[in-house]
Structures are given as C-alpha cells and as structure tokens.
C-alpha cells in the first residue's frame, strides 16, 4: 500500500510510542506527511527521527492535548510545515494505575484530580484536536477523523478505572455525533475499539489479567500495534469514504462488543 496516502497530512496524537507510533509509521510508510505529536517532546522527537531515517516525511510536535492553546500552537506549527491536516488520529490517552493494590484505583479510592486529568487528556484532548483541524477539512470538503476508543468503553474491563472507561465511551458518542455534523462536508468520523494490544500500557498491568483475556479471545492471542494501525490506515484511505460513524473492534473477537 505504499503511496496510497501520498498528499495526505496526518496528525497522530500520542505518537511517541506504542499504538500511536505504529499508526503514525503506517501512514508515513504509505506516503503521508505525518505529524508525530506527543506530550513527551523526547518521545515525539525520537519517533519522528526514526521515521525520517527511513525516508518518510515526518515532524515532531509536542503538546498536552488537554490544553487547547497548546494544541492550537502545535497544529499551527505542523500546518506551517506540511499544509492543512487531512486526517487526524486521536490516540493520546492515559490510564492511571494508582490503586492501593497496585492496579487501577477503584471508584472509592479515586481522587477527583485523577478523574479530571483522565477526562482532560482522553476526552477533551480529542475535542481540542478536532477543533484545531476541522476548519481546514471543512474548507477542503474532505477529511478523516479516527479516534481510539476501547473495548473498555463498550463493556466492563476490570483492569481499567472508571475514568478511562467513561472517556472511551464518550469517544464513541463524540464520533457518532460528529459523523452527523461533519458528514455534509465530506468528512468521515470513525473510532477503533482495540482489545488487548501488546503495548507498554498493557505491560503495565498484571500479567494474570492479560492471560485471562487471551483465554476468552477467539483468536487466542494479543493484538499488535500494527494491527490497530492497519485499521486506522483503512479508515483514512480512499477505500473507506462511505464508512462513517463506525466503531470497529480490533480485539480478536474478545467480548464481541
């Protein structure tokens, strides 16, 4: 599929590692100019430099997606380099594990500050990024927005906190609503609900919980960041211009939500 995304300008948030980096790399390999945005400037820089060293078109950006002014500044910097963003992938997310027993905090232990921080990054972050890129897409009458939800946004997953589950469910509502608002401008809006994917985030959870998921997943394994990236690449490609308001599970059949 090299060359399928030539001419596209793709902004990926949380692109410094894991699923975000795989999504950004897949788009860059397919010919897009990719903006690697991460909260951690060092991670953004190393991911973008690795891409550039492969001959791909890439630029590092850094911002806390929860801060609208920072997002606007970063997007302006990216647009100045590559032109208006034609595809946005909202991937940045956090899933604190601050519980007294080592995993997620149950609701009775969760502080309001942690709740608010997760909402800022996982949900408001997507809103701020969409706000920053949508005017350009509306002017072009074309664009793709893909947000990373989660199986945890559709059903109960014991390893995440209520803040994470609530934001991932909210991403689905945001996706469907914006598919309606932005469809008349030729902009598709979709989400991906990954199941258990082998990433740094996953390895931060207890392995017994992960093994239990594998046992009840039809494909009997974890997914890879590249497999999530392939679905994102489909959703930003010309092959999916009539696909909007969808939430695609990339979960190996886990829970079949």
């Amino acid at each position: 599929m090299s060359g399928t995304h030539k001419g596209e300008v793709v902004l990926v948030t949380g692109a410094g590692r894991g699923i975000g980096q795989a999504i950004a790399d897949a788009h860059a390999a397919a010919g897009a100019a990719v903006l690697y945005l991460d909260f951690d400037p060092a991670l953004a820089k190393s991911a973008a430099e690795a891409a550039i060293s492969k001959g791909w078109k890439a630029k590092a950006l850094s911002a806390n997606v929860g801060e609208p002014a920072a997002v606007e500044a970063a997007v302006a910097e990216g647009v100045a380099a590559f032109g208006p963003v034609t595809a946005l992938i909202n991937n940045a997310g956090i899933s604190p594990k601050s519980g007294s027993k080592g995993g997620k905090a149950p609701v009775w232990e969760m502080g309001a500050a942690e709740w608010g921080q997760v909402l800022d990054v996982n949900l408001s972050g997507a809103f701020h990024c969409i706000k920053a890129v949508v005017p350009g897409m509306m002017a072009a009458k074309r664009g793709s927005i893909v947000s990373i939800s989660s199986v945890a946004g559709k059903t109960y997953c014991d390893i995440v906190g209520v803040h994470y589950a609530a934001t991932k469910a909210a991403i689905i509502g945001l996706t469907k609503h914006l598919a309606g608002e932005l469809g008349p401008y030729g902009i598709t809006v979709n989400a991906i609900a990954p199941g258990r994917i082998d990433t740094p985030l996953m390895r931060g959870t207890v392995s017994a919980a992960n093994e239990a998921v594998k046992a009840i997943t039809p494909l009997q394994r974890f997914g890879t960041p590249e497999e999530v990236a392939a679905t994102a690449l489909f959703l930003t490609s010309n092959a999916s211009r009539f696909v909007t308001a969808q939430v695609i599970d990339v979960a190996g059949g886990w829970l079949m939500t």
Binding site: A179, A230, V243, I248
Partner: peptide, 21 residues
C-alpha cells in the same frame, strides 16, 4: 486481508452514517 488480522466477529456498516447504532 491481513490488514484485518485481529478483527473477527465484527460487523462493519458501509452506510454513509445513515444508521449509527
């Protein structure tokens, strides 16, 4: 295709947003 190698048991709607749930 192998692009969907971790997708099974899913239904994908190709409907332009006509139906969303």
């Amino acid at each position: 295709s192998d692009w969907a190698s971790f997708i099974t048991g899913e239904s994908l709607q190709v409907n332009g947003g006509l139906y969303m749930t």
